Simulated scan of single mutants.
Amino acid sequence: MQTLADEKRRRLSGAVLMCAGVACLSTNDALAKTLTAHYAPFQIMFLRNLIALPVAVVIALVLGGPSALLSRRPMAHLLRGFLWVAATFLFFTSLKHLGLAEATALIFVAPLFITAISALFLREEVGWRRWLAVIVGFIGVLIVIRPGGAAFQAVSLLPVATALVYAFLMLGSRLVDPRESIWTLLLYLTGTGALLSGVLVPFVWLPVRAEDVWLFVSIALFGTAGMTMISQAFRLAPATLVAPLDYTALIWATAFGWLIWAEVPDSATYLGAAIIIASGVVVILRESRAG
C-alpha cells in the first residue's frame, strides 16, 4: 500500500524530472538553432535521430524489456514519425529566422490546438471554459506575431504550424496499441524519424565540419534524455502537476537567446506568452477535472 510519504516522493520526483527534461529539450533547441546556420533542418534531424537511435534502443530494453522493441501497430508509428519529422522541420526552420524565446512561446499553443481538434474532429465534449481559454490563448498568439504590424514576420507562423502538427502527433498516440509502453513510442518515434528524414537528406546534405560533430552528438543526447525524463515524469506524478512545468522552457529559451545571440524579446512577446501560458494551464486543469 502506498503511503502519503511515498506519494509525495513520487510527485516531487515527477516534478524534478519534468523540469530537468524541459531543460534538456531547451538545450536541444538552442543547439538546433546553432546548427541551422550551416545545415538544413532535414540533415540536423537525420543525424540527431541516427545518433539517438542506439540510445533509444538501450532505454527501451532497460526500462521496458525486450517486448518494448516490438509493436503491434507499426503503421501507427510510421504516421506519428511523419508528423514528428514535419513538426521538427517547421520548428527548426523557424529557429533560423526567429529568436529562441519567441519561437518557444508560440509552440506553447499546442495544448490549445489539442483541445480544439478534440472537440471539432473527435467529437469530445469541451465546456465553455476550455473554449474561452482556447480563444484567449489564440489572442496571445496574435499579440506575439502581430499580423499586419510593422514587426510582423510571416516566418512567425511556422512555430504555430509546428504546434498544430504536434497536436496531431499527440492525438495520434491514440492509434498506437494501448498495451505498448511509452518506451516503445520513444523508440519508434526516433527510428521512424531517422528513416523518413533519411529519405530526404541526400538532397540537402553538406559535409559535417569537425567542429560541429560534438553539436550533433549533444543534440541527440539532450533530446533523447529530455524525452525520456518527461515521459517518466508523467508516469510518476499527475499531469496537472507536471504538465504546467513545461512552460519553464520559456525561461531557458530566454536565457539561451540572451547568452548566445544577445536576443531580448520585446514586451509584446512576453505579454502574449503570458496569455498563452495562462490559457494552457487553464486547459490542462479543466481537462483533468473533466477526466
Rank of each mutant, 00 (worst) to 15 (best):
W128E: 07
R209Y: 06
K96L: 10
L120V: 10
A290N: 07
A161R: 02
V281T: 01
P54F: 05
V160L: 12
L69T: 01
A163G: 00
A151S: 15
A225R: 01
R73G: 08
E263V: 01
V176E: 04
L241E: 13
W261D: 07
V57C: 14
G81N: 01
A253Y: 10
T184V: 10
A194E: 02
A56V: 14
K33Q: 08
W128I: 11
F222A: 12
G223E: 04
Q43V: 08
T36L: 09
I219K: 06
L259R: 10
P159R: 07
Y166M: 03
I230T: 12
W183M: 13
H77E: 11
T36A: 06
I51M: 09
I219H: 01
F92W: 08
R235L: 15
A268D: 09
P74T: 06
V141T: 11
L70I: 11
L271V: 11
L83Q: 14
R235T: 14
V176R: 01
H38C: 02
S156E: 09
P147R: 12
I44L: 09
A119P: 08
L69E: 00
L122K: 07
F234I: 09
F113E: 11
S197D: 13
I44Y: 08
A5E: 12
K8T: 08
A233K: 00
I277P: 00
I139E: 03
A37Y: 12
R174L: 08
E287V: 09
F42T: 12
S173Y: 04
E102L: 10
I145N: 04
V199Q: 03
V281H: 00
M45E: 02
G280R: 00
A273W: 00
D29P: 02
A150V: 04
L187M: 03
L12P: 02
S94Q: 11
W261L: 05
F113K: 01
L98N: 06
V155N: 00
G64L: 05
Y39S: 07
A290I: 09
A60E: 06
L79I: 13
L61R: 14
L185N: 14
F234Q: 13
V22A: 01
A133N: 08
I260G: 00
P178C: 02
I230K: 01
A255F: 11
G65T: 10
T93V: 08
G127N: 14
T162V: 02
G291K: 15
L78Q: 11
V264I: 15
L95Y: 03
M1C: 06
V264Y: 10
A268S: 15
I251H: 02
F82S: 14
F82C: 11
P74E: 05
S181E: 03
F108S: 05
D246A: 02
P147H: 13
L69M: 13
I251Q: 02
M75R: 12
V58Q: 03
L132I: 14
R73I: 07
A210P: 13
V264M: 13
G149E: 12
W258G: 04
L221N: 04
L171I: 15
T240Q: 09
G272H: 01
W258C: 04
M45H: 02
W258H: 06
W131S: 06
T269M: 14
N49A: 15
R129D: 03
R174T: 05
G65E: 01
S173Q: 12
L69F: 03
L132P: 10
A87P: 04
L25M: 15
L78E: 10
L175R: 11
I143C: 05
R11I: 11
T104V: 07
P54T: 04
